[in-house]
């Protein structure tokens, strides 16, 4: 049963990250996702210190505030003439440092382990269960990430057309009256939510892997956004299953193994994707060369 819960939580994390990641990489904001996943750390710690509990709601609020703050600062700096990549680099390292210093200073109060911040500990998920009306409802982490996943599905489903247009042609979207900036910040809020819900199980840094790698894999396999979303979520689930197997075989971090598996899946797509794969294209070129000779 524990195995089931671990894999389910991992799959939920990977699927909800992969879902949002598609929009991130289409808008060329992969590194902004990376920045958010690092910089929400102080938000989590402050929410934790203020509320004194590990409840998901204060953490979500703290993370969303800091996540949006990150996006805002990056935008502000790039408007002031700092190159975009340098602005991202300065912002997230600074905020992440604040988080680490806070964790170090309040070690006694904060039940957060620095290692756990980095790569999480999904193996403990089944023991931290949610009691509701005296009934054991299963792990809290699974409910948390499940709820956030549902919220993303709902919001993106409602505004699918808008999100799609904003991803591919923000200028056109703005011209026909879609509030592009609003959807930008909405997406970033959802990314922050997902990151914080996922952070307990896969850690702040490996969230990036789940945000970017499955969606990039899907990007190599299809031309249609909705197909890409499904493939990305599917790849995420595969990562969870095989990552768990790899981790239990090697006796190592589950989150790390999930990432390693996602890297492997990406490599496969990179080499053998039917339309964009390197090997396939090489073969096609060779066939053409032989044909012309």
């Amino acid at each position: 049963m524990n195995t089931f819960w671990i894999i389910l939580t991992g799959a939920l994390v990977a699927a909800s990250c992969g879902f949002l990641g598609c929009f991130l990489i289409l808008r060329r904001m992969a590194m902004l996702g990376d920045a958010i996943s690092h910089s929400i750390l102080p938000g989590i710690v402050i929410a934790f210190l203020l509320s004194g509990s590990r409840d998901i709601l204060p953490m979500l609020i703290g993370a969303a505030v800091v996540g949006l703050l990150t996006v805002f600062i990056v935008q502000l700096l790039s408007q002031n003439g700092v190159k975009a990549d340098a602005a991202i680099g300065v912002t997230f390292t600074a905020l992440f440092s604040v988080g680490v210093v806070l964790v170090s200073l309040y070690t006694a109060q904060v039940d957060l382990d620095l290692d756990c911040v980095l790569y999480g500990e999904i193996a403990y998920v089944p023991w931290d269960t949610w009691q509701w009306g005296g009934i054991d409802m299963g792990p809290r982490a699974a409910w948390g990430i499940g709820g956030v996943f549902l919220l993303s599905l709902l919001l993106v489903g409602l505004f699918f057309k808008q999100f799609k247009l904003c991803s591919f042609d923000p200028a056109l979207a703005a011209a026909i009256g879609i509030p592009v900036v609003f959807f930008h910040y909405l997406l970033m809020t959802l990314v922050s939510f997902t990151t914080v819900a996922a952070f307990e199980s896969v850690g702040a840094i490996l969230v990036v892997a789940m945000l970017v790698v499955p969606s990039a894999t899907a990007y190599l396999l299809t031309e249609k956004l909705h197909v890409m979303l499904f493939i990305s979520m599917g790849v995420g689930v595969l990562c969870s299953v095989f990552g768990y197997l790899l981790a239990s075989w090697m006796d190592s971090s589950i989150a790390g193994s999930m990432t390693a598996v996602s890297g492997l899946l990406f490599l496969l797509a990179f080499l053998f994707s039917p339309r964009h794969g390197m090997v396939i294209r090489m073969l096609a070129r060779r066939r053409m060369r032989l044909g012309t000779n």
């Binding site: 904001m29 990376d34 990039a216 190592s252 193994s257 999930m258 990179f270």
Partner: peptide
Amino acid sequence: RYSRIKEDTSLAIVLSVFFGIGIVLLTF
């Protein structure tokens, strides 16, 4: 260079996958 993935995404992919492998080895 060899796929249609943009530079920033490939940066994020390499960063996170290598780090993930590093974490696997470290915990191992």
